Simulated scan of single mutants.
Amino acid sequence: MKQLLIIAGVAALASTAPAYAKPDHANHGGHVGYGTGGCPPGLAKKNNGCLPPGQAKKLYGVGYRFDRGFAGWTPYNQIPYDLRRQYGLDPYGRYVYDQNYIYQVDPTTYAVSRVLDAILH
């Protein structure tokens, strides 16, 4: 009887051991329904490193200040026409068009004043 209790105890402890994922589990092993690199299809098509929309916005939030020597400004005519029209962008404004967002930047302070969703619907 004592052996039966010990065996039952060992079995109970063994069933509570933590489960470990396989090393390739991070990319979901190529399961159907996942995009490139294990990113869900909705995020994979955004080409932003698989960042959820809320995280992507945080890259340059309102108030973020660019360095005066920043060279990544996006010329007005390189922003799609429909987005320029939709948001009423100023041809003389300063913008960064990156990862499906348009960051409108104050030209005197270099601070982001607006973050705009740049996915055409």
Rank of each mutant, 00 (worst) to 15 (best):
L83C: 01
I102H: 01
P75Q: 08
G63D: 02
Y64G: 07
K57M: 14
P80E: 04
Q55I: 12
L43K: 03
A71G: 09
F66Y: 14
Y97P: 00
P53F: 01
R84K: 10
P107A: 07
L51E: 12
D67T: 12
Y76P: 05
Y87Q: 03
Q86I: 00
Q99N: 13
Q104C: 04
N100S: 12
P91T: 02
Y92L: 07
Q99F: 14
L51G: 07
L51Q: 15
C50V: 04
R65F: 03
P91D: 02
G54P: 00
W73Y: 15
G93Q: 13
Q86C: 01
Y60L: 11
A111T: 12
K46E: 14
Y97S: 12
V96A: 08
G93W: 11
I102L: 05
G69S: 15
K58L: 13
P91K: 10
D82T: 08
Y101P: 00
P75I: 00
I79C: 07
D106K: 01
C50T: 06
T109L: 02
G72E: 02
R85F: 09
R68C: 10
K58G: 13
Y92W: 09
G88D: 10
D67M: 14
Y92R: 14
R94H: 13
P107V: 04
G93A: 12
A111W: 01
Y97E: 03
Y101N: 11
L51V: 07
Y103P: 03
R65T: 11
F70L: 12
A56K: 06
L51R: 14
G88L: 06
T109W: 02
Q55G: 05
D90S: 09
N47T: 09
N47A: 13
T108C: 02
Y60G: 08
Q86N: 01
Y103I: 02
Y64N: 03
Y87S: 10
T109Y: 03
R68A: 15
Q78R: 13
A71F: 09
G54F: 03
P75S: 06
D67N: 14
Y110L: 07
R65P: 05
Q78E: 12
I102A: 00
Q78T: 00
Y60I: 08
R65S: 12
L59P: 01
K57F: 00
Y110T: 03
P107C: 08
P52G: 10
Y95A: 01
Q78Y: 02
R85G: 01
D106I: 05
L43P: 06
R68M: 13
Y81H: 13
K58H: 11
Q86D: 08
G63V: 00
Y101R: 14
Q78L: 06
Y97D: 14
T109I: 01
K45P: 03
N48R: 14
D90F: 00
D98A: 08
T109S: 15
T109K: 04
K46C: 06
K46T: 10
I79G: 05
Q86R: 13
V62A: 05
D98F: 12
G49N: 05
N47Q: 13
A44C: 09
D106S: 07
Y92H: 15
N47G: 04
R68Y: 13
Y110F: 12
T74W: 00
P91H: 08
G69Q: 15
P52M: 07
L51N: 08
